[in-house]
Simulated scan of single mutants.
Amino acid sequence: MVGGTGSIQAVFRLVDRLADSDVPVVIYGESGTGKELVARAIHDGGARRARPFVAENCGAIPETLLESVLFGHAKGAFTGAQRATPGLFEAADGGSLFLDEIGEMSPAMQTKLLRVLQEGEVRRVGDTTVRKIDVRVIAASNRDLDAMVAAGQFRKDLLYRVRVVKIELPPLRAH
Rank of each mutant, 00 (worst) to 15 (best):
A74L: 02
A150N: 10
V2N: 00
G94W: 09
T33H: 09
F78I: 08
T79G: 11
E63F: 02
T128I: 11
V26R: 02
I61W: 03
G46T: 13
D127R: 04
M1I: 02
A47P: 07
K35D: 08
Q110N: 06
R155P: 11
V69L: 11
F78G: 03
F98K: 07
L99H: 04
R49Q: 15
D144W: 01
P171L: 11
R123S: 10
M148W: 00
Y160L: 10
Q9H: 13
A140D: 03
M1S: 11
E168H: 12
L145K: 01
D44E: 15
V130F: 03
D44V: 08
L37S: 13
H73S: 07
I8V: 15
D146Y: 01
G95V: 13
M148P: 02
E67F: 10
L65T: 09
R131V: 13
A10H: 14
D20G: 14
L18E: 10
S31M: 13
L114S: 08
E67C: 04
T5H: 01
H43Q: 13
G103Q: 05
E56F: 06
G29I: 07
R40M: 07
L70I: 09
A147R: 09
M109C: 08
A55H: 10
A60I: 05
T128N: 14
A140P: 08
C58L: 04
K112D: 02
K112A: 10
G87F: 05
G4S: 09
I42N: 02
Q82Y: 04
P24W: 05
L37G: 12
R161M: 10
V165Y: 03
I8T: 08
D44W: 04
S141C: 01
A140M: 07
F154P: 11
T79A: 12
A60H: 05
